[in-house]
Design a protein around this nucleic acid. Structure first.
Lengths: 236, 236
DNA sequence: AACTGACCGAAGAACCAATCTGGTCAGTCA
DNA sequence: TGACTGACCAGATTGGTTCTTCGGTCAGTT
């Protein structure tokens, strides 16, 4: 079987969103590009807002799926500085994810400001980050105990955010993306990880737990997507 | 003698800028608040843009003056994590500086986007940061050699920027300002400073050089302000 | 000589008619 | 029968026009 109808609609919506932004894209345009009638779109999503919300959710699901594969291939990728370095490069390579993380909200219009939509999206991310840190500390991959230091997620967020938002500002194009990713990794390794190199066993154990965490997160993300996305091999 | 006329105009412009933003404030309003005629404003500055540019320059000069005093009182304040912690708290306590650093550009309108104005302002800051880092490394207060690592200023900027910009986003009000400042300090100390505690002699030597650097910077800032600001005791 | 405020043109606000678009639903098609 | 469609509607948006405001000037006042 080829891609389902829902997927084709999401593909069309995603391409148009990338090229013209939420406001300039009409539901009719999306339908025509997907080769269907406008009414059909409303058989799958109750509103334009939900449709494009699904585009973002799918994008997130793709990212999590890919990171899952990366960690499976190399357990050392669980380490904060490796995971964030990977995420930085990956996100910067995706126009949509990039715009989302560099604060380029012109592309999204009301899509994010309208409450409820982006809310759940970010909350899931914050929760997952908290558990991620707990797993790392448990296996000696984090310098500070997240349970004893409630500011740790904030501190990590602050350390990472700068790299993303500087990408939006001009004058940061002086360096290659890989260099900036390395800079972020260096900062994170020193500021959040223990000075000693982790053992392969600890990495393996942490990776196993993280994979489980990501699989649950992925299940949650795909649950609000068309059914065909719930059959991903990673969920088994 | 009381405050000069130029100062009173800047005071009026600053208060109105803080309360209503660049676009909503008229030159006539500034003049009336300062108790003078509109034409008089144009005897001191050639345009509205330059007038409000001077407001920002004065704000910078105040910050540098204050930091100068802080470093004079305690040489340990030259250390990256101390200096940035101080700057973070100080800037967040000043509505104008805060808006400038949290990306709240609604307050500034064309004031920053119009080329040439903000350009020089930020360039001076970048140059000074570069020299600041060189001084620190010279006295063993920095883990990496800025001369060998051209990305260091970028890396520091990225690490600091996040703290400022998270202040603009909602949901960061969960923690006290002092806690967030401490978080920033911790990240910076670990990511940029050597693991060993610096000697008082090194701090003293670095502080002396930094004070000199700041005095030159201050002279540069006040040179584009009305003459009365050039007589600051710190410039002697 | 320092200062002022009436005045000018350009930029922006306010208004309104014409157009567009999110969402619905009666009807078509397979 | 049920998946699908596109004409239709009301509310939002746009574009064009008029009216107002404001940055900057300068002849005149103090």
């Amino acid at each position: 079987m080829g891609p389902g109808k829902a997927s084709r609609i999401l593909d069309a919506a995603e391409a148009l969103l990338r090229d013209f932004g939420y406001r300039k894209v009409t539901v009719d345009e999306v339908a025509r590009r997907a080769g269907i009638g406008k009414g059909t779109v409303y058989l799958y999503w109750p509103s334009k807002l939900e449709l494009f919300g699904a585009v973002l959710t799918r994008q997130s699901a793709e990212l999590v799926t890919k990171q899952l594969a990366v960690v499976r291939a190399d357990p050392a990728e669980v380490r904060v500085h490796r995971a964030m370095r990977w995420a930085f490069v990956e996100i910067m390579g995706r126009p949509l994810a990039r715009a989302l993380h560099t604060g380029d909200y012109a592309m999204f219009g009301d899509l994010l400001t309208s409450d409820g939509n982006a809310g759940r999206f970010f909350v899931g991310k914050i929760e997952t980050t908290g558990r991620y840190l707990a797993i790392l500390y448990e296996h000696g991959l984090l310098a500070d105990d997240p349970a004893a230091d409630p500011l740790l997620p904030y501190r990590l967020s602050a350390a990472v955010t700068g790299s993303f938002l500087l990408e939006a500002a001009p004058g940061s194009a002086d360096f290659a993306l890989a260099q900036k990713a390395d800079a972020l990794a260096t900062t994170l390794r020193r500021a959040f990880e223990p000075p000693t190199e982790p053992s392969p066993a600890a990495l393996r154990a942490a990776a196993d737990e993280l994979i489980d965490l990501y699989r649950h997160w992925l299940a949650e993300l795909t649950s609000s997507l068309p059914a065909e996305y719930s059959h991903d091999a990673n969920l088994r």
